[in-house]
């Protein structure tokens, strides 16, 4: 499914974005860097607070798990030493989640829930990137996330919704217009090592394609910010 995004949707947040992808819609608001509470304070770097609110109900361990994952890799992307003893708050609210009637059918049938996590993470990560750029927080590199699926016939497709034997979430960092490194990966299902590497390889290519799209959006939003110069 195609990515659809808007930047700067929340007026009172430092930076914000709205992304819909694979039937999931997320709004991300970033506040900060701002004064940290004493127990959050880190002497040399910034403290990241990631908050995910689900589409329905209250946050559970599932959301906490996602928060942790996002926080861990954002920590390696944000230039923390520019904001010592401050806190940067990343709020992610899932607005919409189309029920994809559990397409996951592995032998072990672990749970459709884990697979949903991948779809949501995918959307959250892309939306966090756009919001970080909008909030003007310094980052080492650009990043984006793609999701790949091995169908039962064994072919690899860039899709998060079709029936799957395994799914792979791949997040690459981009620096100097080139793929720099793998920042984060998450896999669900049954797959061999070779298949994983094939998915990662495909991810490199797709991530440059997605990056050019995100770049287009960011450039447009910068133009909007500097409209008074025209």
């Amino acid at each position: 499914m195609e990515l659809d995004a808007k930047i700067g949707v929340l007026n009172n947040a430092g930076g914000s974005s709205e992304v819909s992808l694979n039937g999931i819609k997320v709004v991300c608001g970033i506040n900060g860097p701002m004064e940290a509470r004493p127990r959050q304070e880190l002497p040399t770097t910034c403290y990241l607070e990631v908050i995910i609110r689900p589409a329905i109900g209250n946050p559970t361990v599932r959301e906490k798990y996602m928060e942790d994952k996002i926080k861990n890799f954002l920590n390696s992307v944000i230039i923390g030493n520019l904001y010592p003893r401050q806190v940067i708050q990343v709020n992610l609210q899932i607005l919409e989640k189309k029920n994809n009637n559990s397409s996951y059918t592995s032998d072990s049938d672990e749970s459709a829930a884990t697979e949903d996590v991948l779809l949501e993470l995918n959307c959250c990560i892309n939306s966090a990137f756009l919001a970080l750029v909008d909030a003007n927080i310094s980052i080492y590199k650009a990043f984006n996330s793609n999701i790949f699926t091995y169908t039962h016939k064994g072919s690899l497709v860039k899709d998060g919704l079709s029936e799957a034997k395994s799914r792979h979430l791949v997040v690459y960092g981009i620096k100097n217009n080139k793929v720099d490194e793998l920042l984060y990966g998450e896999n669900v299902g049954r797959f061999s090592e070779k298949k994983l590497f094939m998915a990662l390889e495909r991810g490199e290519k797709e991530s440059m394609i997605l990056h050019s799209k995100l770049k287009e959006l960011s450039v447009e939003s910068v133009k909007q910010k500097f409209v008074y110069l025209s």
Partner: peptide, 23 residues
């Protein structure tokens, strides 16, 4: 590290690069 307008100014012996970004 941030999105913005890139400028490169050159003088006889020195030069300056900046990115003007709004937040």
């Amino acid at each position: 590290s941030n999105a913005g307008i890139f400028t490169h100014k050159e003088k006889k012996t020195k030069q300056l690069i900046t990115v003007e970004s709004s937040s």
